[in-house]
């Protein structure tokens, strides 16, 4: 049952991702990104990572998409069709294909037979919180300072004065 849901969501996300990088309408691209990110959130839920799923929805679908849409708006993205790709399309395609062709079989073969256990007890958020604030408190603090630096820097760069 979960396998079936996974396949459906995976196919949708994959399709949306491909449409994102290949279509001409920039706002449509942003909307395809929403589909991909929501698909990811559903898969996280399936894999019993509930907290990460909600953070994904909150931050990615909530803030990141809005930010990107603002970016598109402020840079006067043509809502209609625009010219599609740089000349590099013919290099990028093979590169991506080769990367996939090399990586996917290797990973498939090596991790064959391993399953993801889907029966976790409740209390995922509490365990996660304990883990972050005890074992991983150093990266947590550094990320807080990093967010401050990114905030100050980005506002400084983007403001009109």
């Amino acid at each position: 049952m979960q396998g079936l849901i996974f396949l459906v969501v995976a196919a949708t996300s994959g399709f949306a991702a491909v449409r994102l990088v290949t279509n001409k309408n920039l706002v449509h691209a942003a909307l395809y990104l929403v589909v991909t990110l929501m698909g990811m959130a559903i898969i996280f839920l399936l894999l019993t990572a509930e907290f990460v799923a909600w953070v994904q929805v909150l931050i990615y679908v909530g803030a990141v998409i809005v930010l990107l849409l603002f970016g598109l708006m402020l840079t006067r993205a043509q809502i209609g069709k625009t010219a599609l790709d740089r000349q590099q399309r013919w290099v990028a395609g093979p590169v991506a294909l080769v990367l996939f062709g090399v990586t996917a079989p290797v990973l498939w073969r090596f991790f064959d037979g391993r399953t993801i256990s889907l029966d976790r007890q409740s209390g995922n958020t509490e365990a996660l919180g304990t883990e972050i604030f005890t074992k991983f408190v150093l990266p947590f603090e550094v990320v807080s300072v990093l967010l401050l630096a990114a905030l100050v820097g980005a506002v400084f760069l983007a403001k009109k004065d």
Binding site: S13, V21, D85, A92, L107
Partner: peptide, 30 residues
């Protein structure tokens, strides 16, 4: 759920992203 199904999806999405970064013209799409 088999792990390698998920890994194939992961790799696929990663490679789609790589294509997008290398091929697209608009910086926001990148």
């Amino acid at each position: 759920m088999p792990l390698n199904w998920v890994l194939v999806l992961t790799t696929f999405l990663f490679c789609v992203g790589v294509y997008g970064v290398l091929a697209r013209r608009n910086a926001v799409i990148v």
